[in-house]
Nucleic acid binder design. Structure first.
Length: 515
DNA sequence: AAAAAAG
């Protein structure tokens, strides 16, 4: 078995690796580092969580150790699809470059140019960037790319999804033909193939096994419900989500809840907060500093539940998440794998629980054929009061008061209510927001018996106001929502210390009667 | 059908 010490890395880099506690390279590292150190182009086919980042940072630092960057002329370039990913790569560089004098700059959108300009002017060895901001700097004449010796493209498949390929091609053309290229992608779509054929020179191809489509460390579950009425779907799912989190009890130390839409990320996060969960949203419409703050507090454990769009599905290094909840099933089966891959990492056990409604059927079957297994159906947790708003997959359609039944988890999802023609979203954004708002207040009364004071942090009067303003202003009030979302942290009793024993009072009857 | 990224 190779060790890092066998890999001809710079001693200073090696000592940083050792300090970080790593001894044995992962397969992608063992495969990519040696050719990269020889100056060869590398085509790495690997997913997140395989140790990909170190497989280019370590050789780059070694290759760059001699020489010095000139003003505005970075010596290497790392391109990442998202800001968070770029920031994370930057952290990696800091970690492994700590014993060297190499410098780096992070060029991402959403933050001011000033600081970035200053660093570029001083000259940096490593430039880590998202494509848009990089080109922005270039067009302003701030950046000269003719001295780039090494260029890395990270998560190329995602760049493709995001429409970055033209930008990437352009950036390739701005760098010298003689540069060394390290190129990473989880898949080799035809378009990616074309790019690599065009811009890589005799690359060494390293392919590591798909990160088990489903790691056996991850316990997967699927809970199907069939809301009696379409317009109650969202609320029923939120109720169910809370019940599922509660049912996991103390085993749920921290969790990511994935939603397909940004608006739902906000709604769900807000709803969870109203119910006393230590939750915060993250998606691409939130401003960058808030994204960073949220992510930081999630990493350091002060935030327990991260409600996220797919911005967080891939690439982000969030260690040791005990649970992943799919509030929505992802529309791309691939994303399911990425999402649940946020848990069960590094040999730990993880749990991934997904909520499905009848409309999800086709996504579900795609997911199941991708992961090559049927996701075990789980029962609706105790404490989830089955109301008209949410029923288990209907076995009998006319059993319309039969909410209480718990047994049936057959796969007859096509039975349920599916008014095929009406494809549009069941609840408008504005309605949904007010609905989320409305859920909690009733909650407060229903709950005094509960030992934990989770609800007490709730700023009630303010909500009523917001509620009105929201109603009148339709759905376009994200900024406003963001503002009252943050800052509950200190008041909300620790998620961990809460006893999760589900209680029926948790779901007041009014909750489902309303609307 | 949605998210992300340059404003």
């Amino acid at each position: 078995m190779t060790k890092f010490s066998d890999l001809k890395l710079d001693p200073k880099v090696l000592s940083a690796v050792a300090d970080a506690g790593y001894e044995t390279p992962t397969p992608i590292q063992a495969g990519a580092i040696p050719p990269a150190l020889e100056g060869k182009d590398v085509l790495g086919i690997a997913q997140t969580g395989t140790g990909k980042t170190a497989s280019f940072t370590l050789p780059m630092l070694t290759l760059l150790r001699r020489g010095r960057a000139r003003a505005r002329m970075p010596r290497s370039l790392v391109l990442c699809p998202t800001r968070e990913l770029a920031a994370q790569v930057a952290e990696n560089f800091d970690l492994y470059a700590k014993n060297t004098k190499l410098t780096r700059a992070l060029l991402i959108g959403g933050v001011s140019f000033g600081e970035q300009d200053k660093l570029i002017d001083k000259g940096v060895d490593v430039l880590i960037a998202t494509p848009g901001r990089l080109l922005d700097h270039f067009e302003r004449g701030k950046l000269i790319l003719t001295d780039v010796k090494v260029m890395v493209v990270d998560e190329a498949d995602r760049m493709l999804d995001m429409g970055f390929i033209p930008d990437i091609e352009r950036i390739f053309q701005l760098t010298p033909f003689t540069r060394q290229t390290l190129f990473f992608s989880a898949t080799m779509a035809p378009e990616i193939e074309r790019i690599t054929n065009t811009f890589l020179h005799a690359p060494v191809r390293i392919e590591v096994a798909r990160q088990a489509t489903t790691s056996e460390n991850i316990t997967q579950k699927l809970v199907e419900i069939t809301p009696a009425r379409r317009d109650q779907t969202a609320k029923a799912k939120r109720e169910l989500l809370r019940a599922l989190i509660n049912a996991e009890g103390e085993t749920c130390t921290n969790a990511i809840v994935f939603c397909n839409r940004k608006v739902d990320v906000d709604i769900v996060a807000k709803s969870l907060q109203k119910y006393g969960f230590d939750a915060a949203p993250i998606h691409g419409d939130l401003d960058q500093s808030q994204r960073m703050r949220t992510l930081d507090s999630f990493r350091d454990g002060s935030l327990k539940v991260l409600v996220a769009s797919d911005v967080a599905a891939r690439g982000l290094d969030i260690p040791a998440v005990s649970h992943v909840f799919n509030y929505d099933l992802p529309m791309h089966a691939e994303d399911y794998v990425h999402r649940i891959g946020r848990t069960g990492r590094a040999g730990r056990k993880g749990t991934a629980i997904s909520i499905a409604v009848p409309q999800d059927e086709k996504f579900l079957s795609q997911i199941e054929s991708l992961v090559k297994m049927e996701i075990p159906r789980a029962e609706i947790p105790e404490g989830f009061e089955l109301s008209e708003g949410a029923q288990q997959p209907a076995r009998k359609r006319d059993d319309d008061k039969g909410g209480r039944s718990r047994g049936g988890r057959g796969r007859d999802r096509d039975r349920g209510e599916r008014g095929g023609r009406d494809r549009k979203r069941e609840t408008s954004q504005a309605e949904a927001v007010t609905e989320a708002q409305a859920e909690a207040p009733q909650k407060a009364e229903a709950k005094p018996a509960e030992p934990e004071q989770r609800v007490e942090a709730k700023p009630e009067p303010k909500q009523e106001d917001d509620n009105k303003s929201r109603r009148s202003r339709g759905g376009r009030n994200r900024r406003e929502r963001d503002n009252d979302v943050v800052g509950m942290g200190d008041h909300v009793p620790d998620f961990l210390t809460v006893s999760f024993r589900p209680s029926k009072t948790e779901e007041p009857a009014e909750d489902s009667a309303e609307s």
